[in-house]
């Protein structure tokens, strides 16, 4: 149902992001989506990858602070108002949204949005009722 997202604590220093992504590349990890939010000191890198379990292991073995959580992936028709509708559906249910980031894949005409909400089950139900498609790990690789 949900998609596994990896969060990595990254210090703000030159080349650090390159090092981390190179490490993943060396291990044949395919990154489908990512988001990075930062302050002046540190950032949190969030990744959607083809093999979340191995990714966690690879990063942990390298000594990094990592966590894995389940997030929702939503397929949104690539038309004006598509995203707004999805968000409205969730917020109307009183579910708060922590963060979201979008990506596209070559496969379909939809845009994909990863959303992190406080309650995955409730949000899934609401989106299903509204006829908005929830994607799974298999849909994006």
């Amino acid at each position: 149902m949900a998609i596994k997202q990896i969060s990595v604590f990254v210090e703000n220093k030159p080349g650090r992001l390159a090092e981390i992504t190179e490490l993943l590349a060396k291990n044949n990890i395919d990154i489908r989506a990512l988001s990075i939010a930062d302050t002046t000191d540190f950032g949190i890198l969030r990744l959607i990858v083809n093999d979340p379990e191995s990714t966690v292991q690879i990063l942990k073995n390298d000594g990094m602070t990592v966590s894995a959580t389940e997030v929702l992936g939503v397929a949104i028709p690539d038309v004006p108002g598509g995203f707004a509708k999805a968000i409205r559906t969730i917020t109307d249910k009183g579910i708060s949204l922590e963060y979201a980031y979008a990506f596209i894949t070559p496969k379909s005409g939809s845009a994909y949005v990863i959303i992190r909400v406080e309650n995955n089950e409730l949000a899934t139900e609401a989106l299903n009722d509204a006829g908005i498609k929830i994607i799974e790990q298999g849909d994006i690789f």
């Binding site: 969060s7 540190f42 949190i44 990592v66 966590s67 992190r116």
Partner: peptide, 14 residues
Amino acid sequence: LVDGSILESYQDVE
């Protein structure tokens, strides 16, 4: 920082 569980929320880290 060694505890990954707080990475889910920016506010928790701050």
